[in-house]
Design a protein around this nucleic acid. Structure first.
Lengths: 342, 342
DNA sequence: GTTTTTTGTGCAAACGTTTGTATTTTTGCA
DNA sequence: TGCAAAAATACAAACGTTTGCACAAAAAAC
């Protein structure tokens, strides 16, 4: 069965467990000869190291905990992927947990991870979370904490976010360049810094161009497809000829409304979304959008973790990842042919 | 720092670690009074149980390993979600690993999980995998193995799959009911049973209806958007007026080709896809498709695991989950209004 | 008041590693 | 051949739990 411990190998070879341990670890204090013997025997017995025993003894574990609101969201799936791409080769494994956007679940997840004596916690906190004492506890225990996407500035440790301000700035500027004059904004809740930054970036671009800006052009809490669809009446009433949307789903609703009303996109109306959801290149017209670069973010998160675990506390505290504008059809002034930019 | 062990609590209370351990475990052999004392002290010291020490001693761990080809694929994200929904409340945690569709990575993942002494392995194997000795090893160690989606019939243990045969049967029948006469099939590699079953289900429906069936109507290895697009010339040359596609991406390619060529869907041509990818309801025309019910599958996987871990070896060996046909626009005979079914 | 039973704790070993120190063996060199 | 230095291995304790067994004190039964 699942026997085969270091001790079994030791007995079979008439050496001590210490020697076997060192042999397997490649410690130079054991001779080449016995190392080969040990490796052969380990292979023969189907030995699998017991990381629990090892971590217990060493006091450090090779698993790191990751908490995301929902694992089945494209964005987070990609972040996780990006993290694994760096962490696995470095010998770490990921214990993944979901908060389901609920602070209670998040707290429970943190405790579970602490029980597992993870080497660190990587988290994008739930939308509900406003009290961060559970994460402070992580820091207090001397563990590495890396926040990403949704971060609490008040907490120590690395923070990796998208550069939403510049992204929104870029997107809006792109609309301006394409000749749109009265550009509105479908935004999210301003309690989340990502949405606040997008609003600010959007406004900055308008200001720079000397275009009209004002509250009547900004529509708060419009992130779903339905909300985007429903908001269009007000958007048109406000005289807008384009929109920068803080989310692709809202932009989708906009496109559907226009199709239904016979408003040509991009002929009569321009749209840029945010997130590059998987449907963005697939709908008609294809949706110009800001790419969040989730995989990249995952890489950065993992690197920040490794930096800190290896004692590089000096590594930059806050990393902002540039968002890339993907120009597709929905934001061009003239109806163009199908251009796939990926 | 991260101190606070059972021993510390014991010392602070002038009792032995055994008593503390029993108190925290709710063992009736310790008095109500001391239990409360212990719990209070544990709280005060910020005690977090060390599951590694616990698992080591008990010989069983509360983590279960899960291996998927890619974590950032919608389907697998949802399966994982479904697994967690059952396993977390049962006290288990998930150690997740990706095979990246490479058999080498898969083998490595299995070994990692074995090193973590997981209670079981839940796996959908990589498309490359044809030799299953690494999974046999899992069984040999007496661990629980649950396969899902892509399964190897030769291996012991639970197998949870979608009922692709009946799904394809349903989808094809639906096209028949809507008046399509010469229905083709865009399929995947027949090495994977899911694709083989879909082909068979498709053929069964045609046979039942007495419609033409034949190799000239079946297009193998057409699963990507590009492949779907490119296959259309041959499909039309074969005289088809509808397609059942084994994947939504191929169906998307079909739709794009038709749009480009001015072929009306569903007026002139009908399409049903498979998987209900996130873009399916969002494109125009919206895509009729078979839902894979990933979350549900995750639930079943978790339940199969729990059954086995609790010794219910008699629980059904092979579970087949019905696929649901989602009728949208792409498969209706007459051009209908935009109907959103989600 | 003694014996039996019950109840609550303590003792000590074990899970599989790792690692500082001690010990043995080998090697180099006079 | 002898001896120090170097190389290889052994010893033993520790990581934080859990648990069978022993044991004492209290409660119940006689």
């Amino acid at each position: 069965m699942s026997k085969a411990t270091i001790t079994h190998i030791a007995r079979a070879l008439n050496v001590t467990p210490s020697t076997v341990s060192r042999a397997l670890a490649g410690n130079p204090r054991v001779s080449e000869q016995t190392r080969l013997l040990v490796q052969a025997k380990a292979e023969e017995l189907g030995y699998e190291p017991n990381v629990m025993a090892s971590s217990l003894r060493k006091g450090v574990s090779n698993t790191v905990g990751m908490i995301v609101p929902r694992i089945n969201r494209q964005f987070f799936g990609n972040v996780i992927s990006g993290v694994e791409a760096i962490l696995n080769p470095a010998g770490y494994n990921l214990l993944i947990s979901q908060s389901h956007e609920r602070v209670a679940d998040e707290v429970k997840s943190v405790n579970t991870l602490l029980s597992h004596r993870v080497a660190g916690v990587l988290i994008s906190h739930s939308i509900e979370t406003t009290n961060f004492s559970h994460l402070q506890k992580v820091l207090d225990k001397g563990l590495v904490l890396v926040q990403f996407d949704r971060v609490a500035a008040s907490l120590q440790g690395a923070q990796i976010t998208n550069d939403c301000f510049n992204g929104a700035f870029l997107a809006t500027k792109h609309l301006i360049k394409n000749g749109y004059k009265r550009i509105g904004h479908l935004g999210g809740t301003l309690l989340a810094s990502v949405y606040l930054d997008r609003l600010k970036g959007y406004q900055a671009a308008l200001n720079e161009a000397g275009l009209a800006t004002g509250d009547e052009l900004v529509f708060q809490d419009v992130i779903t497809r339905e909300a985007g669809f429903d908001a269009m009446q007000r958007v048109l009433a406000a005289g807008c000829d384009a929109l920068y949307c803080a989310g692709d789903y809202a932009a989708l609703g906009v496109i559907e409304y226009c199709r239904q009303q016979g408003i040509a996109i991009p002929g009569d109306f321009g749209v840029v979304g945010t997130a590059n959801e998987s449907f963005a290149p697939l709908i008609a017209p294809s949706l110009s959008t800001l790419e969040q670069n989730a995989f990249d973010m995952g890489n950065k998160v993992a690197e920040a973790f490794l930096d800190r675990v290896n004692g590089a506390i000096f590594s930059s505290h806050h990393t902002s990842i540039p968002m890339r504008l993907i120009v597709r059809d929905s934001s061009l002034r003239m109806q163009s042919k199908l251009i796939i930019e990926t």
